[in-house]
Amino acid sequence: MGLGISPGLLMLVAFFWLPWLSDVGAQSTGSARALDALLQDYAYQAFKALNKPKTGIPYDGAVPLNLTGIGISALRLRSGSLRSRGVTMYKEFEIPKGVVVTPYVERLIFVYQNLGNLSSVYYPLPGYAYLAPVLGLLPYDASNLSATNLPELHINASDKPISIKFQGVSSVPAGSVAKCVWFDLDGFPNFSNAVSGNICSTAQQGHFGIVVESNAPAPSPPPSVVPSPSGGEKGGTSKVWIIVGSVVGGLALLVLLAFLVLWLRKYKRRKKMQQMEKAAEVGEALRMTSVGNTKAPAAMVTRTQPIIENEYMP
């Protein structure tokens, strides 16, 4: 092979490295999105367990043991009914009329999430402390109740915003101001002022919470929320190793790709030479003739017979 490295070996090494690098990126950015997909599946199972689930009635779902503390529910609606009537109260969410769903679907399901004591795990917010669990409201297409990994629909409350009335909110420390935080589907936080200490509003889907700056005295936790365990030094060390592993893995992958490119170039060059040699061998063979004591190739001679154009002579 020229370089002494089998192309099969290069492919095999790249095959094992690429999934590892992809998994490292997923661990750092996709945990909350993976949770949304999982909770959508479990929320839909609440409908599948019923013989004839009704539209407009919320059904609570069950989560696996490793997600104990998270609450989910599902509410199926017609898009036309949502726009013309809204929803008086769905858990902590009051959805007014005039909400438009895009892309349009005949029926949709609102999946409700209460992340409980896992709020800061999936939606960490440095410099702030949660006064209430993070709540999620995500719409999905309801045409297939067995579907999984569905993309979220987009809602827009154009006339009046959706109101969120948080329950069990911890008291705000003296000198602090409660703020609403909205996380979009990419996990970016957006802050606004809370109304009456426990009411937030939104025009779109996403995840929502009430926070205060953490430099204020620590608020007393709500009765139903268990404080989430801290990752501490172990979590920081894990992140360092992930970064180091990503860098080393990336460099190793670049080296392998460089070897692969060099091998491909040499392979193409050799292939071209083989084609040229084959073309030369396929050419027409010349007849050999003797010239003295030496044999040499000679081409066939074809004499053109003269033809008289006009035999008439004046």
Rank of each mutant, 00 (worst) to 15 (best):
A298V: 02
M276D: 11
F183E: 01
W263E: 09
M313S: 14
D23K: 14
A280H: 14
N156A: 15
L150Y: 00
G236P: 05
Y44G: 03
I57R: 08
F259V: 02
S171Y: 05
A26F: 13
R303A: 14
I109P: 00
L150I: 02
L18N: 15
L150Q: 08
G232A: 10
P229T: 07
F93C: 03
E277S: 10
Y128T: 00
G175W: 09
N51L: 11
Y122G: 00
S163A: 11
I57C: 01
G136T: 03
T302N: 06
A216I: 04
Q204D: 14
L153F: 03
V282R: 08
K165W: 03
G127E: 04
E106K: 12
L137K: 03
S146R: 10
N117G: 14
G8V: 14
V181H: 00
G56S: 03
T202W: 04
E309P: 02
L253V: 03
V226N: 13
D159T: 05
A14E: 08
V63E: 13
A43D: 06
M89I: 08
K179E: 11
L251V: 11
S220K: 12
I307Y: 08
K52A: 15
M11V: 14
A299H: 11
G71L: 12
V24S: 13
D159V: 13
P306A: 10
V212C: 04
L264N: 15
S246K: 07
R83S: 08
K234H: 11
V291P: 02
G61E: 07
T302F: 07
S230R: 12
Q113H: 15
V195Y: 10
A252C: 13
V195S: 12
G127H: 01
G175I: 05
L82A: 03
V261P: 00
W20T: 12
P217M: 10
G175C: 07
Y122M: 02
P229S: 07
M288H: 06
T148Y: 00
L9R: 14
L254S: 14
P133T: 01
E281N: 09
N310P: 01
L9I: 08
K266Q: 09
L256E: 01
L253S: 07
C200H: 03
L260Q: 14
V177L: 13
T88L: 10
V63D: 12
R287T: 15
T289K: 06
A142G: 06
N51K: 10
Q113N: 10
P124H: 12
L137A: 01
P58T: 08
A37H: 11
K54N: 09
W182H: 15
S230F: 08
V169A: 01
S84Q: 14
P306L: 07
P189F: 10
R78W: 13
P306I: 06
T237S: 12
L185A: 08
L286N: 13
F110V: 07
R303E: 15
S192R: 06
L286C: 10
A299T: 05
R85Y: 08
S119R: 05
S31E: 13
L137N: 00
A252W: 07
S146H: 08
I95Q: 00
A258K: 05
T237D: 04
G209I: 01
L131A: 04
I210R: 01
T302K: 11
S28E: 14
N144Y: 05
L9E: 11
I155D: 01
A132Y: 04
V101L: 09
T304S: 09
M89G: 09
